[in-house]
Design a protein around this nucleic acid. Structure first.
Lengths: 149, 149
DNA sequence: TATATATTGATAATCATTATCATCCCCATT
DNA sequence: AATGGGGATGATAATGATTATCAATATATA
């Protein structure tokens, strides 16, 4: 119903698909590539399940992140955000955060394998990594050029 | 009094060095390489300035991070932590976080310049980056081997 | 269908952080 | 040395995100 990988994870973890959880998963799929806060998920989920409560949203997001269907992280506004884990970027999250407009871009390729290999040589077991670049994006640089010449 | 670079930053930013601020800076220097929460700073600062309050600690840490004397980040426990910015790693923070014991190691070298260069070619202005590896450290792997063989 | 178990929603509780505000301290000027 | 003013401080209230609680519901299985 949600794609082979997601369904497998749900089944492997014995996770009952209630109406509320379905709504939340649908919201996350509708927003592939975006990073939603619990509050934002609530608003959209209510369009599908009008009585859903914020507690259920938090519980569900937390659980879906625990079984790797979602990825949870925080940028610069003190609230956790969740994104759908596609099968490629799972465990490899690279975010490019604009310090001016907050837009988040993704870095597609993965040049970090060699670094991970190095750590494993040193005895670490690498489970995940997260790399954030804080930037001014081309649009914001352009805008600020216009404002203060 | 605190090293050439720190003094310059303080002076450039017209930042008055009160007893409380001195105490906090001393605490951060006493804990070079460690990542302290506001609460932890408070406890140690009170040994030097018994009446210092938590609000002052937050204000001071925030300000010292704003002028790049400290670096602020969050790991897996929902509270901000601060570390002294040494002159080499400033704007390049690489942390290796053990998922079992929470110990934080640092990755010294910087293999990310080429990635940054790539982004700059694409029109981004890279201000900072942060890379976290989530691992099981050698000690914890050893321990867990002993527990469940 | 009955019963055990999981899930939900409302709401209270928690916890880190921020805002407020009266007081204090430090420096410059008289 | 006294005075005045603006920043700094500490106590504490307020905020806001997240978590815990608990009674009510829904679901699965016997």
């Amino acid at each position: 119903m949600f794609g082979k990988n997601i369904n497998k994870k749900l089944k492997d973890n014995d996770y009952r698909l209630t109406g509320q959880r379905t709504a939340i998963l649908e919201v996350m799929m509708d927003n592939q590539g975006r990073h939603l806060s619990a509050e934002e998920v609530l608003v959209q989920a209510r369009e599908k399940q009008p009585n859903i409560g914020i507690a259920t949203v938090y519980r569900t997001l937390e659980k879906l992140a625990a079984i790797d269907i979602l990825y949870k992280s925080m940028f610069n506004d003190d609230k956790y955000r969740y994104e759908l884990n596609d099968d490629h970027n799972e465990h490899h999250h690279h975010h490019i955060v604009c310090l001016a407009c907050g837009k988040i871009a993704e870095l597609e390729d993965d040049l970090l394998c060699s670094l991970e290999g190095q750590l494993e040589t040193q005895g670490f077991e690498v489970v995940d990594h997260e790399l954030k670049f804080f930037v001014y994006c081309p649009e914001c640089r352009e805008k600020s050029k216009r404002v203060s010449p």
